[in-house]
Nucleic acid binder design. Structure first.
Length: 745
DNA sequence: CTTATGGGCTTTTTT
DNA sequence: AGCCCATAAG
């Protein structure tokens, strides 16, 4: 079991019973240490599989942990408490829903649901949402919950905070009324439950002797509180983390928890894993050099005894389309040499960047898989279907009710709903109940909708989950609606996919065959409880699965595919070949990060995470111009590029000076224009006032002198040209205004 | 009152 | 390029 572990790793795995902090650098075998430690604890008889808890942040990491464990243990690890913070808290609340004051079938709001709920609350409170953007309110509420604070505990410092606190209060009341919880609430409720209920607390404190925490640097105040609470009965916390990879401060994560944990728990027991087994020398050296620019660090330097490897290749192109094309060409060449496709990853800072890359890969006929972005359960048609399904369980769920009351259109408009809302507020009832008080034509339509829901609920009472889902998408009218929609084919396909997903889900759950819950057996039985569900209806289980695991956005279209994802999503993964794309100031580091304190340092850690995903080959790419939100933007290269030592880099393609002007060697110019002509993203010619401009065209400007057109966008008098001037660098000129003479081409 | 249509605004990252 | 909302037609 310990084969191939280095002394530090071995020490971590075989630590005696005590709290410990493992500072594990990127690629130092962190996941392996965690899984091996769990197996070791069990096999040496120091812990039973049910006396262990392992917490991760992502579902992916939890699955990874379980699969590594499965290979090493004689028992099925599935019933063990291994999962995400949210997943485990959900499990706790499902088992003890009554004690937590929740309905058995409580539903989970994702971010979009939550935002809709907040908008509704603001409307009900007659708040001018130009003064309070729903997003800001959402942010405020989540930040409060993440730090473990209820509305009544907030002492507002100004009028604005007083209002926000009041909204938090109202929103919470609304959630209670409707029987729904948001992500933050899962954690807060679970924590409060344990704090309040001494019997439960004692039970879980005695049960879990070992608590292992992955990615400890990403814990927020509330998660830390939850962990401390569980460990108060004498359990040992084995925390693994890397402060240099803390990239979730934006959602409340506090790296300070590591220092605090070290001080209060693991004072004498800190183990550093600094040998990197993943990346070759140049890559690792560049990562170290980059992260050294950060001020606040616990301090750590990774080393490797692998060779230097290849230098990091940097490519700068004129446009984002050219950047994508360059990447595709490079990938093709590697594939010809036998590179496995699924070992090639394309990383980007924001999801919007995937579109163009996907387009280029698709055109080249290269299979790819996108992780994250618009995921399956987040698609509009799926959300509609899920809303109907939620109403089968909980008619009070006004968010879902409003989502589908007029979809497909049933002649129920904003006006009627406003009236209905007023009525519901007056009698403090759900929207569904308020239907009775509505008169006139809209009353009839509303009653018809309620009958539809009721009928579906009755008819599906005894159905299995897949049949139930099929019945609901059919009888809700969704299927017919999308059949009639000319663009609806894909959506229809996804709805069918939902039925398959339900079938697959059932299969997976039946694997485990869980005992039914009775009130008296609640504490004893949880030992054998299914990961997601406890005596819960299959539908409720499926819905919480959908909320907590949004799923990938493509049905596994071929395993052997190029991997596309955000840098955040790539954390914890590794690939032979990594492309980090869009390395431009404003994009990476992202411009929004500049406003937040310590924002730049977090961006730098993000870049550090990106670099350290690569085993053998790393490519950094950027584009001088990029389409963003429908507009072309010009940017200079990322400052992070300038923080990487030249010795590890090899520049390909254009290279602009740090100041932003482009310095193009004459010999290169024609190559650039040839490349530019292949550009699919921008037009290749434009006519303004009877003058024809095309890419590659030579022009003369009265002040800037002679240059070459390297990019065109827009039409007519709004057209703009990106021109590479011989003397003054590249400029963007409006063709309707600038006076240009055509000289050659 | 509802539904269709075009203009304005937007998105950083995730459980 | 897509989503939400104000405006116009049924």
């Amino acid at each position: 079991m310990m084969d191939g572990l280095n002394p530090q790793q071995r020490a971590a795995v075989t630590l005696p019973e005590q709290h410990a902090l493992v500072l594990a650098g990127a690629g130092s075998g962190k996941t392996r240490v965690l899984a091996t430690r769990m197996a070791w604890l069990i096999q040496t008889g120091q812990a039973s599989p049910f006396g262990l808890m392992a917490v991760t942040f992502t579902n992916k990491a939890a699955r990874e942990m379980l699969s590594r464990l499965a290979g090493r243990l004689p028992v099925q690890p599935r019933g063990m408490w291994v999962g995400t913070f949210h997943g485990l808290c959900n499990r706790l609340l499902r088992i003890h829903h009554a004690e937590a004051g929740l309905p058995a079938d409580f539903q989970i709001l994702d971010m979009a649901d939550q935002l809709a709920a907040i908008k509704r609350m603001l409307k009900a409170a007659q708040v001018d949402d130009s003064l309070f953007a729903p997003r800001d309110v959402q942010y405020f509420i989540n930040a409060a919950k993440e730090s473990g604070v209820r509305a009544d505990a907030i002492r507002p410092r100004d009028t604005r905070e007083r209002h926000l606190t009041e909204f938090y209060q109202r929103y919470q009341a609304q959630c209670e009324r409707e029987g729904v919880v948001d992500f933050g609430e899962l954690l807060l409720r679970a924590t409060e439950l344990l704090e309040r209920d001494a019997t439960l607390r004692a039970h879980y404190q005695q049960r879990f002797r070992h608590i292992l925490v992955d990615e400890f640097q990403d814990t927020n105040a509330l998660q830390y509180r939850w962990l401390q609470l569980l460990a108060q009965g004498g359990a040992c916390i084995f925390a693994v983390g890397d402060d240099d990879q803390s990239i979730y401060a934006f959602r409340g994560a506090d790296v300070g928890n590591m220092a605090d944990f070290q001080r209060h728990y693991a004072r004498d027991c800190v183990i550093r894993l600094e040998q990197n087994y993943r990346s070759s020398g140049h890559i690792l050296a560049a990562a170290n050099a980059l992260i050294a620019h950060n001020e606040s660090r616990l301090g750590k330097n990774l080393w490797t005894d692998a060779g230097e490897g290849e230098p990091i290749r940097v490519s700068e192109q004129f446009t984002d389309a050219l950047e994508a094309q360059w990447i595709v060409d490079e990938i093709r060449a590697m594939l010809r040499e036998g590179q496995a496709r699924d070992q090639v990853a394309l990383l980007y800072r924001s999801n919007a960047q995937s579109r163009l890359l996907e387009h280029a890969l698709f055109s080249a006929g290269l299979p790819y898989k996108v992780t994250g972005g618009l995921r399956f359960f987040e698609r509009q048609e799926i959300r509609h279907a899920l809303a109907y399904l939620r109403l089968m369980l909980n008619i009070r769920d006004d968010t879902s009710w409003l989502r589908v009351v007029n979809f497909p259109p049933r002649g129920i408009g904003a006006r009627s709903l406003e009236k209905l809302g007023d009525l519901a507020r007056e009698q403090a009832s759900s929207l569904s109940e308020a239907v009775d008080g509505m008169s006139g034509r809209s009353g009839v339509s509303l009653a018809a909708f309620r009958n539809l829901i009721d009928t579906m609920r009755e008819r599906t009472q005894d159905m299995g989950l897949p049949e139930l889902v099929a019945h609901v998408i059919e009888h809700s009218g969704l299927v017919r609606h999308y059949e009639q929609d000319r663009e609806g084919a894909d959506r229809l396909e996804n709805l069918r996919e939902l039925v398959s997903a339900a079938a697959a889900f059932v299969l997976e759950q039946e694997w485990e065959d869980w005992p039914a819950m009775t009130p008296d057996s609640r504490i004893v039985a949880d030992v054998d409880m299914a990961p997601s569900v406890a005596g819960l209806s299959p539908l409720a289980a499926f819905l919480s699965h959908a909320a907590l695991e949004a799923g990938d956005n493509q049905a596994q279209a071929g395993q052997d595919a190029i991997q596309l994802m955000t840098v955040h999503a790539a954390k914890g993964l590794e690939f032979d070949v990594v492309f980090i794309t869009g390395l431009e100031d404003g994009l990476f580091p992202h411009e929004n990060s500049a406003q937040q304190a310590a924002g730049l340092e977090e961006e730098r850690r993000l870049m550090y995470v990106a670099i350290t995903r690569a085993r053998r080959r790393l490519f950094l790419t950027l584009a001088q111009s990029r389409m963003l939100h429908g507009k072309t933007r010009y940017s200079r290269r990322s400052r992070f590029l300038d923080e990487l030592p030249e010795a590890h880099l090899k520049w390909l393609g254009v290279r602009s000076a740090p100041g932003g002007h482009t310095d193009v060697p004459p010999a290169w110019r024609s190559a650039a224009s040839t490349a530019a002509r292949r550009n699919t993203g921008l037009g290749s010619s434009v006519t303004v006032r009877d003058q024809d401009f095309r890419i590659g065209q030579g022009v003369r400007h009265a002040r800037f002198g002679e240059g070459t057109i390297v990019g065109l966008s827009g039409n007519g008098l709004d057209a703009q040209a990106r021109i590479q001037f011989a003397d003054v660098g590249s400029k963007t000129l409006a063709l309707g205004i600038a006076k240009l003479d055509i000289i050659a081409g």
